[in-house]
Each structure stands twice: as structure tokens, then as C-alpha cells.
Amino acid sequence: MFYPNSPQTSPQLTQIPYGQQYAMMQRQIQQPYHPFATTEPQARLYPYHYQGPIQQEQGGFITQQSTAASPQYVQMRVTPVDQSIMSGYPNQTANGSSSSSFNYNIHPQQQQQQQQQQQQLRHHAMPVGSVPLQDDRYRKQLIVNYLAPDVTSTDLHELFSRFGELDGARIIYDKQTNMSKGYGFVYFCHAEDAKEAVERMSGYEFHGKWLKVGYSTNPLNIVPSNSSPYVHAGSRGAAG
């Protein structure tokens, strides 16, 4: 039997160049792979992502010199942007860049009308829970959420009447099932009393439920100042 490094198959040491006398086997001759043993700084910083320098080929596509990437890492192929796409944008300079302001050559009167329309939209648009300043009635009506099913309009009136005089209180019921929808409205005579009720009743436990109280901004629920107070009856038909 002959071994790869046996004296019968191995040459004389004098015939082997210096430095390879003890590297006779194939696994010894093959050098191990060192990912950080390279002179390129990109490979030292990113050993798993770097795959060699990027070269520009004919046709405008950018390719990489090395083989496919590892399945664990996804390499994105980048193509140059066609400058003709950006030619339609206004205020574009000769080098292809555009300024931040756009001039669509709008007539001054049209621009003024658009600004007025935007101001009107901001004036009428009102986020949930906010209180408008032009109508004091919005500051007097509250919406009470997360009410228990057994709470009546009379219970709601008695709960909030300790903060001040009320114009009314009612629970909203479903017309088909005649069941409470879980929320109601309270109408105060003074805005200061309503503000105190919002601050003190939010998070209050009532009939096993934690109440959420806020201003009601729905104009359909506003009680006119010259109208008669609501009837605080315990029956659902009268309260709904």
C-alpha cells in the first residue's frame, strides 16, 4: 500500500523548493479562506456584503464582478436614472436638479381664491374633541361614552347635575331594538360647569363602566337656548 506522503511516492527534499517541504498533501497545500485577509477597505468593513468592485458596462447597466450573493443577503441591482424623465418638472436647472418651490404660472386672482378656499376649509374642519370658538353652545354640550346598558337618562342627569344647572341629558337608544347604544349627551347651562365635568368625570366608574367624557361637536345635538329642557323620564321611549 502506498500513501500520498510515503517515501516511495514523495520526491527528495532537495528537489522541493524551500517553504513547501512540509506541504505535501493536497489539504495542506490548499490555503484556508480568510474573509478579512484583503487589501480593499470595503471588504474589511463589510465582509458579507462586499463582492468586489463595481464596473460600468456598455448599455448603462451596473453589474458586479463577483458571483451571486448568499441567500441570506439580498443584493440590489441599481440602474442609472434617465434624465429625460425629470425634464417635465418646473424650475429645473441645466444640471438636472430642481428647486423646492414650484411655479405653475397661476393667475394671481386664482391663487388668492385657492388660498381663501383653504382658509375656509381649515375654519370649518374641526378635529374630534375640539371646541370651536365662534359658538358658545359647543362648550356646553358633552358626550358621555361607555355607558352601561342599564343607565337611563334620569341617572345621567343626576350624575352630572352636581356640577351645575343642566339644560338636559339623554341616552341614545336603538330604534329597532330599543336598547341603549352605550353613549349619551349632557347639556349644561354654563360653559364653566361643562369644563369642570369634563375634567372630573373622564375615567369615572359608573355602573361598572369607566366613562369617557368630552365635548360634543355635532351641531345636530345642540340644544337651542330658547327651547324647553328635555324630559328626564326613566322610560326608554321618552328618553330616546
Rank of each mutant, 00 (worst) to 15 (best):
F2P: 14
P4L: 03
P4N: 09
N5G: 07
N5L: 04
P7D: 05
S10F: 04
S10Q: 06
S10P: 08
T14A: 10
T14M: 09
T14R: 11
Q15Y: 03
I16D: 08
P17N: 08
P17S: 08
G19W: 12
Y22H: 13
M25F: 05
M25L: 06
Q26H: 09
Q28C: 04
Q28Y: 05
Q31R: 14
Y33W: 04
H34Q: 05
H34Y: 04
P35C: 08
F36Y: 13
A37G: 06
T38Y: 06
T38R: 13
T39N: 06
R44E: 03
L45Y: 09
L45A: 14
Y46K: 15
Y46T: 14
Y48A: 14
H49C: 04
Q51F: 03
Q56I: 03
E57P: 08
G59M: 05
G59A: 06
G59D: 10
G59E: 07
G60C: 13
G60T: 09
F61R: 15
F61H: 13
F61E: 11
I62E: 09
I62Y: 13
Q64G: 08
Q64R: 13
Q65L: 03
Q65I: 02
Q65W: 03
Q65E: 05
S66N: 10
S66W: 02
A68S: 11
S70I: 06
P71S: 11
Q72C: 10
Y73K: 15
V74Y: 14
Q75M: 01
Q75Y: 02
R77Q: 04
R77P: 05
V78L: 08
T79C: 06
P80R: 12
I85L: 10
I85W: 14
M86I: 11
S87D: 06
G88N: 08
G88T: 08
Y89T: 07
T93A: 11
G96L: 05
S97L: 07
S97H: 10
S99H: 11
S99Q: 06
S100E: 07
S100K: 14
S101E: 07
N103I: 06
Y104F: 11
Y104N: 11
Y104T: 03
N105G: 09
N105M: 04
N105Y: 04
I106G: 09
I106V: 08
I106C: 11
I106M: 12
P108Y: 11
Q109D: 03
Q111P: 06
Q112R: 12
Q112G: 10
Q116T: 07
Q117G: 10
Q118I: 10
Q119P: 07
H123W: 06
H124W: 12
A125E: 03
A125K: 08
M126V: 10
M126W: 14
P127S: 08
P127R: 13
V128A: 13
L133P: 09
L133A: 08
Q134H: 10
D136P: 10
D136H: 08
D136Q: 09
D136K: 03
Y138K: 06
R139L: 11
R139F: 15
K140W: 01
K140H: 02
Q141D: 00
L142Y: 00
L142H: 01
L142V: 11
I143N: 00
I143K: 01
I143E: 00
N145Q: 01
Y146E: 01
L147P: 01
A148L: 01
P149G: 05
P149M: 12
T152A: 11
D155Q: 14
L156K: 00
L156W: 01
L156Y: 00
L159G: 00
L159M: 12
F160Q: 01
F160A: 02
F160G: 00
S161N: 07
G164P: 00
E165L: 14
L166S: 00
G168R: 02
A169K: 02
A169R: 00
R170K: 14
R170L: 05
I172W: 00
I172P: 00
D174N: 07
D174F: 15
Q176V: 13
T177I: 13
T177N: 05
N178V: 13
K181Q: 03
G182H: 02
G184K: 01
G184F: 01
G184D: 01
G184Q: 00
G184A: 01
F185H: 00
V186F: 00
Y187N: 00
Y187W: 00
Y187E: 00
F188W: 00
C189Q: 10
H190W: 05
H190L: 04
E192H: 11
D193G: 13
E196R: 04
A197N: 01
E199F: 15
E199D: 10
M201F: 06
G203N: 02
G203R: 02
E205V: 15
H207C: 10
H207S: 05
G208N: 05
G208Y: 15
K209F: 05
L211N: 00
K212G: 05
K212S: 04
Y215L: 02
S216E: 01
S216Q: 01
T217N: 09
P219S: 01
L220T: 04
N221D: 08
P224D: 02
P224V: 09
S227L: 13
S228K: 14
P229I: 06
P229E: 05
Y230M: 06
Y230A: 03
Y230G: 03
V231T: 13
V231G: 11
A233H: 06
G237F: 15
G240V: 06
